[in-house]
């Protein structure tokens, strides 16, 4: 896999390049800012671009650069890295795209296997979300009473958590030790309980399901 890296921290950038090479990937280039990465991707396509969220240009230059890369080369996978797992950044990432994209904490990809798995899933078209963030959000959302999410069963919440981590139905089945058919049934129940429209494509509804719980968790309309 051809990978380009944009990261303003020299130490982390060099370490990431070495780890990518150890994982058997080709490092097409390492850049200290987003503008240099966009120029390189415009000249020669890569399979996945890895970007730091907080880097030049701007306070969240990685997100702006990801938007430009996605507009320039829609087939290029994008992995955004950060020191912080924040819902706001996740929402921005999902606004950029619902396919071939990921958002992970920097220290959580510090292994050949986990980095390789993350890149493979992004290249295969999945959304990869930092599991810590997905777990925290699903747990928080489900604990609130009076929301559609509160009506989900424990198993459906587990399925939604894994959907939020970007897992496909087969992967969810493997994780929960149930059949793919049972996963489909739970996913259909989640769509129904969250009131998601039936005329959307299945993939679109998956993203809507994740967004529904993220948004419900972020703002609770109850006044004190």
């Amino acid at each position: 896999m051809r990978v380009a890296v944009a990261e303003d921290g020299a130490l982390f950038r060099e370490g990431l390049a070495l780890l990518l090479q150890a994982a058997g990937h080709e490092v097409a280039g390492c850049y200290p800012d987003g503008d240099a990465l966009v120029a390189a991707v415009a000249a020669e396509p890569v399979d996945v671009a890895i970007l730091d969220i907080r880097m030049p240009p701007g306070p969240d230059g990685g997100l702006q650069t990801a938007e430009r890369v996605r507009a320039l080369r829609p087939d290029t996978g994008i992995l955004l890295l950060s020191h912080y797992a924040e819902t706001h950044y996740l929402m921005r990432v999902l606004e950029i795209g619902a396919e071939r994209i990921g958002y992970r904490l920097k220290e959580r990809v510090a292994g050949v296997r986990v980095l390789g798995d993350t890149l493979d899933r992004i290249a295969a078209g999945e959304i990869v979300i930092e599991p810590v963030l997905a777990r925290r959000l699903v747990k928080g959302g489900a604990s609130q009473t009076g929301t559609a999410l509160a009506s989900l069963s424990e198993r459906e919440t587990d399925v939604l958590r894994l959907m939020a981590e970007g897992r496909a139905n087969n992967a969810i089945a493997g994780e929960l030790y149930i059949s793919a058919k049972a996963v489909e049934k739970h996913v259909a129940a989640i769509f129904t309980k969250l009131g998601l429209p039936g005329d959307a494509t299945v993939h679109h509804r998956r993203v809507l399901a994740v967004l529904a719980f993220l948004q419900a968790n972020r703002i609770d309309g109850a006044a004190p």
């Binding site: 921290g9 130490l11 982390f12 370490g15 990431l16 070495l18 780890l19 150890a22 994982a23 907080r54 020191h83 920097k106 220290e107 510090a110 292994g111 050949v112 980095l115």
Partner: peptide, 22 residues
């Protein structure tokens, strides 16, 4: 804190990952 200690420790985590791979 972000650009210093946190960034350096993240880089250290990568280095440990590299050592583990070899």
């Amino acid at each position: 804190l972000h650009d210093g200690a946190v960034a350096d420790m993240s880089a250290l985590a990568l280095e440990l990952g590299m050592i583990s791979a070899t």
